[in-house]
């Protein structure tokens, strides 16, 4: 209990210091390019009340969610196959390196050119950016699978589904957690770029609008709102799931 109190106090202090530095910097700069924290808060409240911010936030979150899910499922499947089969790995390794190194912007532009300025193209572009990362991480996990458990599954005739669920996936859960974490952080940033380039709603689209109007308070208000939501996902979804997945560790 005291540990929790200490960490809460720690968090408030550290956040307070950040706001204080911001406040001082804004007072020193005296420029519309760096508004006061209070101004940003006011903008945030106004935008929330009008329903504009929640709407665009929800749209971006939906895209992030779908792209995240797609890239996790497809990336994990590719990584598993590459990690388990030496031949597949050797053959497709250069593809993986190629895709890992294509700039996100190139994928986005090409998707829009090839598939049009559609929702599917936007989500696809984000997924393609993330899939190679997930595949590379999961490949490491699949390579590290413990032989003795595979022998167990085979000699007791577990079958494919049981083996996957009770033998393979539990061993991969640290790798899942790692790629989900870095995945979420990467995916929502790319979603903003996708929205900026070819969508007419979402946080990225709004940021583009505010950029043209030099509306810095709105830019900061949207950013902070979004970061807060992502942090909530970490605290209320990832952390509990990780605790559950690791409950067996002594």
């Amino acid at each position: 209990m005291t540990g929790r109190l200490v960490s809460a106090a720690n968090f408030i202090l550290s956040l307070g210091l950040f706001v204080l530095i911001w406040q001082l910097a804004a007072a020193w700069a005296k420029s519309p390019a760096l508004p006061f924290p209070a101004t940003v808060l006011e903008t945030f409240l106004l935008a929330s009340e009008s329903g504009e911010l929640p709407y665009h936030l929800a749209v971006t979150l939906a895209r992030t969610f779908v792209a995240f899910l797609l890239s996790m499922i497809i990336g994990a499947s590719i990584g598993l196959v590459m990690g388990r089969s030496r031949r597949v790995d050797r053959f497709f390794d250069s593809w993986l390196i190629l895709f890992l190194n294509i700039p996100a912007l190139v994928v986005i532009i090409l998707c829009y050119i090839w598939f049009g300025l559609t929702e599917a193209a936007a989500v696809l572009a984000v997924s393609i950016n993330k899939i190679p990362n997930v595949a590379a991480t999961m490949r490491e996990g699949a390579r590290a699978l413990d032989r003795q458990y595979m022998d167990l599954a085979q000699s007791y005739r577990f079958g494919a589904w049981k083996t996957l669920r009770h033998v393979i996936l539990p061993q991969l859960s640290p790798f899942f957690a790692a790629s989900a974490r870095s995945g979420l952080a990467l995916v929502w940033k790319i979603v903003l770029v996708v929205e900026l380039l070819g969508r007419s709603n979402g946080v990225g689209f709004q940021l583009h609008l505010f950029f043209q109007l030099f509306d810095v308070p709105s830019i900061l208000a949207y950013t902070i709102a979004f970061v807060a939501v992502i942090q909530m996902i970490e605290i209320f979804i990832f952390k509990p799931w990780e605790r559950h997945a690791n409950r067996w560790r002594p």
Partner: peptide, 24 residues
């Protein structure tokens, strides 16, 4: 039916003792 006791116990550490038995 073949039962196999391996050189290491090879119990699935992420499943409880009861679940380890139920799985086979």
């Amino acid at each position: 039916r073949i039962g196999y006791v391996f050189q290491s116990p090879a119990l699935l550490p992420w499943r409880s003792v009861g679940e380890n038995l139920r799985l086979v």
